[in-house]
Design a binder for these strands. Sequence first.
DNA 1: TATATTGATTCAAACGTTTGAATAGCGTTG
DNA 2: CAACGCTATTCAAACGTTTGAATCAATATA
Lengths: 372, 372
Amino acid sequence: MGQRKSGHVTLLDIARASGFSVSTVSIVLSEAPLSKNVAVTTRARIRTIARQLGYHPDAYARSLRRRSTQTIGILAFDLSDPFCIPIMRGIQDGLHAAGYLPLVMDAQTERKLFDNYLHMSLERRAEGVIVIASWVFEETNLLGDIRKNNVPVLIVGRDLAARGISSILVDNEAGGALAIQHLAELGHRRVAVIRGPQEMCDSEPRWNGIRMAAAQTGIQIDDRLVFQLPGLSDPMSGFEGGERIAKSMLATGLPFTAVIGFDDMTALGVIRGLCESGIRVPEECSVVGFDDVLPAEVATPAMTTIRQPLRAMGLEAARRVLEEIGKTPRRRGDSILHQTSPELVVRMSTVPPPAERRAARSAGLRKRSNTA
Amino acid sequence: MGQRKSGHVTLLDIARASGFSVSTVSIVLSEAPLSKNVAVTTRARIRTIARQLGYHPDAYARSLRRRSTQTIGILAFDLSDPFCIPIMRGIQDGLHAAGYLPLVMDAQTERKLFDNYLHMSLERRAEGVIVIASWVFEETNLLGDIRKNNVPVLIVGRDLAARGISSILVDNEAGGALAIQHLAELGHRRVAVIRGPQEMCDSEPRWNGIRMAAAQTGIQIDDRLVFQLPGLSDPMSGFEGGERIAKSMLATGLPFTAVIGFDDMTALGVIRGLCESGIRVPEECSVVGFDDVLPAEVATPAMTTIRQPLRAMGLEAARRVLEEIGKTPRRRGDSILHQTSPELVVRMSTVPPPAERRAARSAGLRKRSNTA
DNA sequence: TATATTGATTCAAACGTTTGAATAGCGTTG
DNA sequence: CAACGCTATTCAAACGTTTGAATCAATATA
């Protein structure tokens, strides 16, 4: 067989086997412009031999010589968070179309791993880096290192435009507003809210959106029914937080007919907590989530939520980073914040509040979709 | 700054800036054995300059020269299937400990992408390949190509040992048995079953396990209450299939007090289908899943399921593939099927059947855990 | 004083590609 | 027949590392 010491078939192997020079073989197999000057018979011969031996060009040698790796580093803060997946999918699709390969890395919410992988992105000569982030990564100084090497960076899910990094994220304020408007339309007046952890940049604007839209729709939110999620990195922590807080809500003794969870996992936790305390969702209490991740979709009752256009955000991220690569370092655009529009997805976890139920039902207010 | 034409800082840059030769710089920065012969002052000088310029060794040049990439290709059939994630996590952890980098690729259930990525694994000189598979990939002939290049392959989630590929998967028969034994202990006698799609190798043994254990526990399964999932690649198809089949079950008019879903997504679909038909879970009907993926854990009621030790399977995969790499091609072990033990996780979706409920409750039979 | 020994550093070749420039053969044209 | 233009192919250098062997002082040993 064509095995040399390295175990992989090389151009030299094919050159020897075919009687042509390495150059010719390279020109043919890489379909270089020159290859149209190569005799058809030669081309055929070289090609068949290559196939026979199972030749695959060495990406390392090639990239070294071509000085381009066609690779973008994707640094996800935690792949086990279902939030990341559709974004990744979008990025991947965007890159694939342009012939780029995503170099996927999962930081597992560990700062050290994150830094490691950022290093690797540089060593692997990623031509750009997309970070899918939550709050876990404060200003790792490596981002400076990346800059120093002229690699465009982009972050999705967090606003670092102020620090000079292009960012893509959902319009949290609009999202918060959508949630409470939906509840208002259903007739809810007493709404409990779970805010996100302080470390997370989504928390504040989302809450602002809720507050402002509440004021507009005449809902007043009782401070005692506003809770805050602690900041832990485990994707289950949102769920457990929601479960625990739901019980705290009931413990206040205050009346409420709906809960807005910071995100879907939190909201699922709320549902669990309420059910365990004997409160039925949605009959006795409505629940709204945020994100629209898979578990929210397949839970029963299916959860009403504010969808983030995650895939689209990934696509946009890919588009933008490729665009930056095209430019010369000097001509790189300023870092921009790109906000995407959230979308209300009405499912089964929200209904009119108990008191109004009968009236509303006969008024035909309950249009809803079951699935995504 | 240290920018040369390539935009990345190289050894040559540091050599120039420090006055030493490229060799010395390399020896110092790569901490080669020879570096203990290098004067301490020299070492310090080189190191600080490297740091100043933001040097990162070029993985391409390095791998080319060292003839080792420290890379393992991980080919997941669909990252948006929550099943994949814990396996990946396990693989990643296993590789990381050995200083290897996973090259994650998401085939998105598309045959073409799968083939593409398999190519890439070869071009990127992955030293081994781990495939996380379901049924989608019949004998893609590229696997032969991989063999030709002496790259050890391993598949998790599918048994291809017969075709000469080491495989890791759960003991489906034992899993199926666990499910029905659990229901039997709760007192169920009329159990409906949803089998997996024919294309999937888990389907048959899982069903065998159910049948055999059913016979042993004296349960007889009515053929008319055995259904089969069609084989589609979308991760939601299991869910939708379950939902649809749940309604078919009810349509038979036959009595049943529990359902075993082929996997968690199917079982979640069953719950949805039953609820929409007014049947309450678990009060009127128990449901058991398989896999133990995140959505099953955070649904309410939390789902009783047969857990696959996914993370452990990933770890084992990493261990095994690294082991193979260590050996010379000749000495590579035969492909082995490694079966892992499933585990019953009792949550809230299973209770004694309606008729027995009262008796059982007073007998203290309802020990259960809420969370994982 | 010649010869090892050691310590600090450098030479030069190699890894597998790509590619601008060179070469050789050969027919056409002025 | 010299000059040119094709076509088909090869040369050789380069990409950024690593590393066995070489170099060169300076010191220790014979």
